[in-house]
Simulated scan of single mutants.
Amino acid sequence: MTKLQPKLTSGPGAMAKALGITRLHNAMSLVADDVWIEDQGVIIPEDNIVSAPRVGVDYAGEDALKPWRFYIADNMFVSKKVKSK
């Protein structure tokens, strides 16, 4: 994407596309120089982190209800907000 848009994080595919990640990156090491995860020292207060069930994984049975989706409360880039518990 050339412009910051709320759709940026509407799902893993959109996020990968925005970051320029393709299938050519499959199995690449995250500790090498090609792709990496960078810590920029941003600290999110724990009470601002929402844990909710993932969206669109009904096929996962009872695991679909597990709170394995995390996002920052009131973040405009969250595709579907779920009330936190």
Rank of each mutant, 00 (worst) to 15 (best):
T2F: 07
T2Y: 04
T2R: 08
K3Q: 12
L4I: 15
L4E: 09
L4N: 10
L4C: 09
L4M: 12
L4P: 07
Q5I: 02
Q5L: 07
K7I: 13
K7E: 12
K7Y: 10
K7H: 11
L8F: 11
L8N: 06
L8T: 13
T9F: 13
T9R: 04
T9W: 05
G11V: 08
G13H: 09
G13E: 14
A14G: 06
A16D: 03
A16Q: 04
A16E: 04
K17V: 12
L19H: 05
I21D: 01
T22Y: 12
T22I: 08
R23H: 09
L24P: 00
H25A: 10
N26Q: 14
A27D: 13
A27S: 10
S29D: 10
S29L: 04
S29M: 01
L30F: 11
L30Y: 01
A32T: 05
D34A: 12
V35I: 15
V35E: 05
I37C: 10
I37L: 15
E38F: 00
D39G: 06
Q40I: 14
G41Q: 07
V42I: 15
V42K: 13
I43P: 00
I43C: 06
I44M: 03
I44H: 04
I44K: 06
P45K: 09
D47Q: 13
D47Y: 07
D47G: 03
D47N: 15
V50W: 09
V50I: 11
S51Y: 14
A52L: 03
P53F: 04
V55W: 02
V55E: 02
G56V: 02
G56P: 06
G56W: 08
V57C: 08
V57T: 06
V57G: 02
D58V: 09
D58C: 01
A60T: 02
G61E: 05
G61V: 01
E62L: 11
E62W: 12
E62R: 13
D63Y: 10
D63N: 12
D63V: 10
A64K: 02
A64L: 04
L65F: 13
L65N: 13
L65C: 02
L65T: 12
L65K: 15
K66S: 02
K66G: 01
K66D: 01
K66V: 00
P67Q: 12
P67L: 13
W68E: 00
R69H: 15
F70Y: 14
F70E: 00
I72F: 10
I72Y: 06
I72C: 00
I72L: 09
I72Q: 06
A73Y: 03
A73F: 04
D74S: 04
D74R: 10
N75I: 00
M76P: 15
F77Q: 00
F77Y: 15
F77I: 02
V78C: 01
K81C: 05
V82G: 01
S84H: 13
K85T: 05
K85N: 05
